[in-house]
Amino acid sequence: MRRRVSPWQVAAVAVLVVLTVLYLFPFYWMVVTALKPLVEFYRFPPTLLPVHATVEPFLSVLFARGYLVLLRNSLVACLTAVAAGMVVAMLIAYPVTRFPVPLAFRRGLMNWVLSLRFLPPIVVVIPFFDIVRKLGLYDSLLSLVLLYTVFSLPLTTWMLRGFLLEVPMEIEEAALVDGAGRFYAFFKILLPQLAPALLATGVITFALAWSEFMFAFILSATPRSQTFPIGVASLVTQFEIIWNEMAAVGTIAAVVPILLLLFARRYVLVALTFGAVREKA
């Protein structure tokens, strides 16, 4: 039996097709530009597909320009921040969900952590810059790691709280009754249960730290501590833009979080709304 197709359905499909183009074409254009030799980029009208496709722009930025170092910096800073953030967040989320603490304490603490999500980076970076310079930590990955850890906390803590609430307390209590310590119950019973959720949370916070720009822009000066987005920005704002190289770094910068978040896709919306929205896909 065929259902009647309403004009609204036709409109909806048309709108979605247009949107698909609006969302995929810009990425396509960036990747294609990254694969063109510079001569071809300047050709008019522009070619929709690279005629002489080359990975030269990628190799040129990574090796000749030394962006491999920035890639490593980003990796080190983000991974460290994710790991540290996870531990700190667990130290907040676990007591709040597993112990009978007063409501006001729980609510106050969680709200305070959430408020960090709304703290404008520029407000933090101005004093941080001065402090970091006085401590001799200017242009060091450590200062970035500290900030990335702090700013990953709201998301991580709230995610962990949500996951912890979903694991029934009885599982641990059974172990406790059997004479196991709280330590054992946490590491051997609870943590394995949470592993997939922890992984997803880590992936999302990694992707967000990876995208961070302002802190790195202000607190780093040399390839010693510059992250990948800084490299991207310097190719976009230089006087004479090398278009295919700019597109190449843009592609690398975008591909990492996109791939990661397609992997953790179930949790992205939950994370970005701090658990207010649950969507499955």
Binding site: Y23, A207, F213, V236, T251, A253, V268, L272
Partner: peptide, 20 residues
């Protein structure tokens, strides 16, 4: 899935795209 992609694109990369 289509709509997750732009949200997780680094603003810097979005800037590159906009330049192009």
């Amino acid at each position: 899935l289509l709509f997750l992609i732009p949200m997780v694109t680094p603003p810097i990369a979005a800037g590159v795209i906009a330049r192009l």
